[in-house]
């Protein structure tokens, strides 16, 4: 089996295994798996409204997946996408409510601010890693909590008067699109999907076609050899975190400027940033792969909402089934290993 074919094959098997075990669980707990999965499918693609909602959900997933994947390609594990996303969300909304400007200035400014905010949030762990070899996983996890509580504080005190959400952003900063909403039976689909796809292209182009990407990939594979070849390893570590954080910040902007139009006090994390880890891993840390795996995660997330309604499967069970699919997907390493063993037996 060629490498390319194998890389394609593994996620497909993973998803099938997830569906299979979901089926078993439904049978064991006395529900009809066919009805269950039919309602899952219908909830994702059975209706234009649902499809619109899936694409809306896919939008931030692509960006958070790209954020994780980008750092990963340079050998860094950015667990802080969640925090960078929250910071980006708030920054975008802040710009959205603070000024009223012409749309051509206001919207790009809000989006850009979100990217910068996410980038700054990721720069800190990047700097600590480069200068003092502090492990980025620890720092980014802590930065997530700092982000959560600081943004909550700002929403409560600066952006509102002890309310638990901000005002709605001005129309001039919104990604909302009556056209797309109309097209999809009034879902919350917004223009953000185009930004996500553009970012996926940017990541591919940056990594594969530019000298910056060459350096980043080289450092990711072997930072010793990169250093010997005259590359500045520390600069590349920081740069990769900044770009990764910018993607994460944009994911936040999608929620703030597109889906919701405001920022609200959060009791916990959104999960979009953490799901980004699974999206990136399933997508093989490539731009194209991230798009497809974000589509899967988005469809599962939105489609699952329909399962209790249509087939009577309780929410908790739906969560377990979704989690199982994700589990098998995330353990694609195991599948890879098994395939390799079969191959070795056959070939060697």
């Amino acid at each position: 089996m060629t490498k390319r074919l194998r890389n394609l094959f593994i996620p497909v098997i993973a998803v099938l295994l997830g569906i299979l075990s979901g089926t078993l669980i439904m049978i064991v707990s006395g529900y009809d798996p066919i009805a269950g999965f039919t309602s899952l499918w219908y909830g994702a693609f059975g209706d234009l409204y649902y499809t619109g909602e899936v694409i809306r959900q896919v939008t931030p997933y692509i960006l958070s997946g790209l954020a994780v994947a980008f750092a990963f390609r340079v050998g860094l594990f950015n667990i802080g996408v969640e925090g960078q996303l929250i910071v980006g969300w708030l920054a975008a909304v802040w710009i959205g409510v603070a000024f009223e400007l012409p749309k051509v200035i206001h919207l790009p400014l809000a989006i850009l601010t979100a990217a910068v905010a996410g980038a700054i949030w990721a720069f800190i762990p990047g700097l600590l890693k480069a200068k003092f070899r502090v492990h980025e996983v620890i720092v980014t996890i802590m930065m997530n909590y700092i982000a959560l509580h600081i943004t909550n504080y700002i929403i409560r005190t600066v952006l509102s008067e002890k309310s638990d959400k901000t005002k709605t952003i001005f129309e001039s900063a919104s990604l909302r699109s009556p056209f797309l909403e109309g097209l999809t039976d009034y879902s919350r689909l917004h223009w953000g999907i185009l930004i996500s796809l553009a970012c996926a292209f940017t990541m591919w182009f940056l990594l594969e076609k530019t000298t910056i990407g060459y350096e980043l990939r080289s450092v990711g594979f072997n930072h010793h050899a990169s250093q010997y070849a005259g590359m500045n390893v520390n600069r590349n570590i920081i740069l990769s975190m900044i770009i990764s954080g910018a993607f994460a910040g944009l994911a936040g902007a999608m929620e703030g400027l597109g889906t919701f139009g405001y920022a609200a006090v959060k009791g916990g994390f959104t999960g979009v940033g953490f799901d980004g880890i699974a999206v990136a891993l399933l997508g093989g840390n490539t731009a194209v792969g991230v798009i497809f795996s974000a589509l899967l995660f988005g469809a599962l997330k939105v489609g699952a909402l329909n399962m209790p309604l249509e087939s009577g499967i309780p929410n908790e069970l739906v969560d377990i089934i979704i989690a199982l699919i994700v589990f098998f997907v995330a353990s694609s390493y195991m599948i890879r290993w098994i395939i390799d063993r079969f191959n070795n037996k056959g070939v060697k």
Partner: peptide, 19 residues
């Protein structure tokens, strides 16, 4: 460890300093 990026194609390794 120091001479090659083993996961790069041999072609890309040839320009490790001159890319």
């Amino acid at each position: 460890k120091h001479g090659l990026v083993l996961d790069f194609p041999i072609g890309e390794n040839m320009v490790l300093q001159t890319y």
